[in-house]
Amino acid sequence: MNTGSLDLKSVGPRIRMMMPLLTPLEAKVVDTVFGLRDFNEDTTLKEIAGEAGVSEAMVVKITKKLGFAGFREFRNAVALYNQLPTSEMHQELSPDDTSEEIIQKVFHTSIHALQETLAILDVAAFDRAADLIHRARQRDFYGVGGSAQIARDVAHKFLRIGIRSAVYDDANMMLMSASLLGGDDVVVAFSHSGNTTAVIEAVQLARKNGARSIAVTNYDTSPLAQIADVVLCSTAQGSPLMGENAAARIAQLNIMDAVFVAVAQRNYRAAEQNLQRTMSAVNSKRKDRMP
């Protein structure tokens, strides 16, 4: 990893995205580093190994597994990342927090997730996703639980500009959908962990039938990301009370809001006309429009 040209905001997210590839012991070492309040460019390899209860050789091995040349490059990158103003935004929620503290922490966590997601977002992948959605004959969105809610929000936005899509949140329905897709179609799969079996199996079947696939996930090393044609990654730090999903959901919605605008831009006149038509169709249902 070339830290000289690296956006420092992306250091934390890129390390977090690699965590699923680590063993529990290796992950514990990384958590130890990020848990040290006084971690800086002078922190020694021996200190980290002692704090984590592992050998120095293992610490070096982990830093290389994370994409760094060695411990020194890893230490310098993390130390600089920790000095960023945004690194102070993520604060753990506590049962003893006041209402004001809860509001501040929840909002700051979401802002933090947005800023770091922006730092790691692959523009080339973003453009490719917009092209696939724009050109597709059929667009099927897959997601389970909270991810299904993101899929529905995105489908609603696209319908407003005349881009029709279908949302599936049931394992059997996703497989039925995938069995009918072909080379002119695209699947957009939402999964925070990238490990949701129902979504992965449906994407595999869709791809087998020739459809293209877009994964929206928090981990670019996840099983879902590995099989997708295009990967759009969000990033969010975990919290015992909120988990990662809450802040990641905000980041994924923003990614897809941007994709929505990019798709609309590809045929702006049609998008504008369809937006006027769909808005006109529902205006009569607004209370402030009724006589």
Rank of each mutant, 00 (worst) to 15 (best):
F68Y: 13
M58K: 15
Y81M: 15
S110W: 12
K64S: 06
V60I: 10
L181Q: 12
R269A: 09
K64E: 14
V199K: 05
S5F: 12
R164H: 09
E116V: 14
D31T: 08
R75F: 05
D127K: 10
S234F: 02
N254Y: 12
F34S: 08
V203I: 14
Q91D: 12
R249L: 06
Y219L: 11
A206T: 06
G146L: 03
G162P: 15
N76W: 01
V59N: 11
S10G: 12
R152K: 12
R164K: 12
V144A: 09
I150H: 04
R135T: 08
K46I: 14
E56C: 02
F260K: 02
G50Y: 03
V263K: 08
D127N: 13
V123M: 11
V231F: 03
V263E: 02
N40H: 15
V29E: 07
A49G: 13
Q104V: 05
G146H: 09
D127P: 00
K9V: 01
F126Q: 07
A129G: 02
Q91R: 11
G67I: 00
S147D: 07
V54D: 04
C233R: 12
Q204N: 15
V60L: 08
V54G: 04
A49W: 09
S177L: 04
R286N: 14
A211S: 05
L224T: 00
T217V: 07
L80N: 11
F158R: 08
T63F: 01
V106S: 05
A198H: 08
K105F: 09
E51T: 15
L8T: 08
Q252I: 12
R266L: 00
V282K: 05
E51K: 15
D127I: 03
H90C: 12
I15C: 09
R16V: 06
S177P: 04
S191M: 00
I163G: 11
K65L: 15
L25P: 01
A281K: 11
A125W: 12
G183A: 03
F260C: 00
A270T: 10
D185G: 01
V144Q: 05
D229Y: 02
A113T: 06
V30K: 08
L159P: 01
L275M: 11
R75M: 15
L93A: 05
